[in-house]
Design a protein around this nucleic acid. Structure first.
Lengths: 149, 149
DNA sequence: TTGCTTGCAAATGATTTGCACTGCT
DNA sequence: AGCAGTGCAAATCATTTGCAAGCAA
């Protein structure tokens, strides 16, 4: 089950080079994020191996500082955590208005190109320098779409 | 100064049809949002006419329920409020990594078309029904770009 | 009067932090 | 011994809510 060996190797190297240890708890968190995708802290606590809430927050913050995970924020009560794009590749999010679930999606390269070009044009006219972009596609996930009928 | 007469007329009508009153405080909030664009609650309180924090929150919630304003959420401490797209037109956001300021931008119609098409394709393969999309263009605003040198 | 809006103060709840303890070097 | 990582309990802080006025119909 504990696949994602490449991810763990990369994370370990990253932490190592910053004098941080890749502890069991941290490995558990990364493994969960790799398996499940973007999830909330309560979800991580439930799935995690009895990790304390404060430790989860602290470890996620450390991992975020290392550039290994990223905190997403949409409407709901809890933020969501996911692996950094360096580990997963550039992607965007389907966000369900009903249950809040977040699903990763990749867009065709030519669409990304069109967007990048348009974003740069729009930004520069405001004196703004583009570093990155996020696209959230909102709607109903398969489950909530069914429930709505 | 108090321009945006069309906006106020529309908001008044919307509230009216729901049995809500378009009070002075509410008008002040809408006027500020129309003038300044997306801003945080502290910003609104400072600019607003001595409105109490709790009233600001409550009125913004009411206005959001009416579909007149929308709450944005990015990284920072405070959420940001803006007029609904029904009043401002469809647009996206330049978000400054430095100071958190949010600036509205519109994208060319053909780019929106390409995106809509790609989003629908990506979503449907996950059984997801698209209702809407948000694009955040992250980077440095003019001021923070200068400060960074 | 009746009901909605407002301000103040207190409550809520996600996230953060202080501190003592454990385990590894 | 020394230091990083952990858990528990307490603190923080944006946002929400209870309640007692104020104001319009």
């Amino acid at each position: 089950m504990s696949d994602h060996a490449d991810v763990h190797r990369l994370v370990a190297a990253r932490l190592d080079s910053a004098g941080q240890v890749y502890t069991d708890k941290r490995r558990t968190l990364v493994e969960l994020l790799a398996q499940v995708g973007p999830c909330t802290l309560p979800e991580l606590l439930e799935a995690g191996d009895g990790i304390a809430q404060s430790s989860a927050y602290r470890n996620l913050t450390v991992l975020a500082d290392m550039g290994v995970v990223r905190r997403l924020v949409h409407g709901g009560d809890h933020g969501r955590w996911e692996l950094a794009e360096e580990l997963t590749g550039h992607h965007h999010h389907l966000v369900c208005d009903g249950c809040g679930v977040v699903i990763d999606v990749e867009l065709p390269a030519d669409v990304e190109e069109v967007m990048d070009h348009a974003f740069n044009a729009a930004a520069s006219s405001a004196g703004f320098t583009v570093a990155h972009h996020n696209v959230d596609i909102l709607g109903q996930c398969a489950d909530c779409g069914i429930a709505a009928r």
